[in-house]
Amino acid sequence: MYKNLAPFSYERKRLELFNIFQYKHLNKTITFPVSLVEVNNVAHSYPVLWQRNKDGVELVALVGLEADHNYALSRHPNFVQCNLLILEAYPFALAKTDKDNHWRILVDEVMGQGEDDPAPLRTAAGELSPEADHRLSALRIFAESYGRTQALSQLLDRVGLLKPWDVSLKIGERFVGLQGLEVLDRDVDIRRLKLAGVIEQVGWDAIHLATMHELSLFRMQNLLEARTAPRAA
């Protein structure tokens, strides 16, 4: 989702903050990281599952089935209002870039497209603008439970609860495949048995995440219907 990340400094005076819909490249992305604090909301709209990457697994929301069909940015009527924190925060982002593993705020240096004027980073008085405040607040809220989310995700992976979820869907005459996604073990007895061990280490978060994940999978139908049915006026 990021194209040109650079460190963000509070010394910075200028930055153009475009409307999220003007960052056209985001439409290419169909999975976005989510944090425990927002899982309850996100599960109402999108499947919440895991994506394997070089650092292990990451909890993500699946917001479309194909590039250029990102329903988190489409205002499609199939999806109840749900703004992913990571998109609310864009172009601000987080990364651990130093040896002490401290999170650092980055900014994706990308120009938006379209006619709307961007919001400034600072007001005339030199304070953060309301728009910048909104986006950095979203990043803070995301960050506060992201570490906990990641630790829980890696734990679920270590105990063998995550299983590949390769999906092949027929859209019109084409087959669309989703790879690299993982879900909790579909065997309910095994899932509950292993989950008890995870709960013993992290407490209720494990029950919350596992249940929201299961509920969210019923949103796959929503994605498929949005992709195959003509858009409502």
């Binding site: 509070y10 924190l85 650092r104 906990r148």
Partner: peptide, 24 residues
């Protein structure tokens, strides 16, 4: 400049106005 720690440490470092409930 541009740094934060997590959770409890972050509570000191982060102080933007918007609350969680504004987003959730």
């Amino acid at each position: 400049p541009g740094s934060l720690a997590e959770k409890d440490e972050a509570a000191q470092a982060w102080s933007f106005r918007r609350k969680e409930v504004d987003f959730l």
